[in-house]
């Protein structure tokens, strides 16, 4: 089910990695869990922190910051795992803090400028969101830049296939 409806709005979940704000489509989110040390896996890229037990299903836990090329996140009291569904597979993303759920208009999404990031297409767009508002988008002075992530581009299977 997509959160994009006929009037061109979508709900996103925003969270922080270091000082950066990111957002993913609400529709991909399954749940938010407290951080729990996962079981490490041998022979996987370092951004795969291991596997954890999601109600009887074994899901991988990914250090999202590391995955996106930032410094690995340090674990602290607010660290949590966003459990998402990507192309039918489930994965947990380690993030520093979950910020908000906001409604944005499609028209407010700017395509990401052609910057030199390690991987193309991971960031699908940028949007400005005023801090701590659920009332939609407004470009106040307190507005923050949120990078929208393209989850399909983050698919683990794809990455591991390339790595294998």
């Amino acid at each position: 089910m997509s959160s994009i409806d006929s009037i061109g709005e979508r709900k996103i979940v925003t969270f922080s990695l270091g000082n950066q704000m990111f957002g993913i489509e609400m529709s991909a989110l399954i749940e938010i869990r407290e951080w729990e040390e996962p079981t490490p896996l041998p022979r996987v890229p370092s951004y795969i922190k291991g596997v954890t037990n999601l109600r009887g299903t074994v899901i991988p836990v990914v250090g999202l910051a590391e995955r996106l090329g930032w410094e690995p996140s340090a674990i602290h009291a607010r660290s949590c795992i966003l459990v998402v569904s990507i192309a039918g597979k489930q994965a947990g993303f380690l993030v520093d803090e979950v910020a908000d759920i906001v409604l944005i208009k499609d028209g407010d999404i700017q395509p990401s400028p052609d910057v030199d990031i390690s991987e193309e297409g991971v960031i699908s767009g940028l949007v400005q969101i005023s801090a701590r508002t659920t009332e939609g988008v407004s470009a106040h002075e307190s507005a923050e830049m949120v990078s929208l992530l393209d989850l399909n581009a983050l698919s683990l299977t794809r990455q591991l296939d390339l790595a294998a």
Binding site: P42, V44, T57, V58, Q90, L160, D161
Partner: peptide, 15 residues
């Protein structure tokens, strides 16, 4: 429990 259900088969691990 299968590992490849949500991840990828990992050599040396059966699940």
């Amino acid at each position: 429990k299968s590992l490849d259900q949500n991840l990828h088969p990992i050599r040396g691990l059966g699940g």
